[in-house]
Amino acid sequence: MAFREYKIGSRMFAFALGSSMMITLYFPSKDIASVQATETALNRQLSFGRIGGFSVEDPFLKGQGKPVTVYLNKDPKTGSPIEPVTAYVYPVGVPFPSGLRHPRILGAGVKDLSLGQGRIADAKESSGAVFVVSAAGFNGKTLSYIENATATRGWQPSEALAAAGDANSRYIGSGKIMFVREGCWWCHTLLPEETQDWQYFGAPPMLGDFNGESPTAFGSDRKAPDLLHVASRNSSREWMTMHFYNPRLVQTHSIMPRYDYLWGEKDAAGNKIDYDKWRAEYNEYIAGKRVYAPEVPQPAAESEARKLIDFVMALK
């Protein structure tokens, strides 16, 4: 074994790999860890919940264990009108996102405000909580922080859900699960690039826009438009509904798959959806035997299609 270069070679190997890991893992992790969460990051993680992919609370990616985003225009506790506010409702047992579990990753300032004024340390997964994103001054700068509305305003999750009603509830967190499960991100990136790309797809994200979010699902292989700001470009829920059901209804040349199977068994009115009939009629329409395409069923409130549309419509 005392032959040639093995002794020095194995030391060199350890040194080479070690310094490579040092530069590519340790140095950047220090830099990235010092990034301060932006308002976008707080909104994103609060609406998405803990993990957007496989997790123990949602092993088959059905969208379980995720928060509900609600738009409130009256105080859920007192019922008196308030300035419209977006609140993130975590019913009992829904896991909190990383920013609440480890406030350190929110970055200096945001962490202090969230823990101090926001009282996020008082929130417990076992009793549920309602969060809002607020802003306050910190060292002369205005910063956004997470406010535990259950502690500061006495809002209970069930009250907040009831006050908003289904019309003002959005299943954004569950929708992100659909986005990951259905592989939307194989074609649609969530990352307008830092070059001219943004003129079409909107502003590229900033450094602190992702703190607390996992997976970020930037995507790498863009075969379709970037979606990070899609709802700012197209805010029509009707268009989205038709486009998900059969993209070629609204965009003749689209190569996107049909996601009609996300509608499930029944439509919004509770009627059974007859897919075979719909497809037969659609084929007739394509063949020129019908003047109008068949009507797209409205997705039921509980359907996966509704959750996915909620998510996409929240990408502003």
Binding site: R4, I8, M12, F15, A16, S19, I23
Partner: peptide
């Protein structure tokens, strides 16, 4: 700057290893 040092370290190391032949 890290690159410069890294490449120098690489060249030195490879020369040291190869010169044992």
């Amino acid at each position: 700057t890290i690159d410069v040092f890294y490449i120098i370290a690489f060249c030195v190391s490879v020369i040291v290893v190869v010169k044992r032949l």
